[in-house]
Amino acid sequence: MSASYFSDANLLRAKEILARYPRPKSAILPLAHLAQDQDGWLSCEAMMEISRLVGVTPAEVQGTTSFYTMFKREPCGRLLVSVCTNVSCLVTGGPEVLDHLRSRYASDADVTVEEVECLAACGGAPSMQVNYEYHERLTPESAESLVEEYRAGRRTPRTISGSKAAG
């Protein structure tokens, strides 16, 4: 039998997660988050392992996880920059932030820029998240310098699923 997809520490976490729920299938979402914490995306290997742990077919795991936009089905950059353009951000400059970051990082494999729906940060519109850390009241320039701070290591990013980086 092949070795587990999850690291030893994460396999322990996976078992803890499974024990929380009356039915194992409920663990699919949290286990998919755990896989992304580990690898930065949700690979086929991860889904196979989740299917074994949960006791359903791989197709069921893919069927569920592919419904949810937070699960990345191919590797993305180390930094995932999610810019809101829903209405409160739309009328306060969100699209300008998005356009600027998109062109700035168009050919930068380290940074993936995505347009997202309302982040529940409209009081500080326009807003974005970098690996699910909030940043508000942005201008195109301030947004870029924030991303640069992460790149330069002056800010520690969370994982691609938003957990504190494993210590």
């Binding site: 929380r20 299938k25 979402l29 569920t64 936009t69």
Partner: peptide
């Protein structure tokens, strides 16, 4: 108390979609 994280789907705020999602299904 169990905290269950969603994964980016507005419809999961609708209460029965939420229950589906909590059961490991599409929302």
């Amino acid at each position: 108390i169990v905290v269950h994280r969603g994964a980016g789907a507005y419809i999961c705020g609708e209460e029965t979609a939420l229950l589906e999602s909590l059961e490991g299904e599409r929302g």
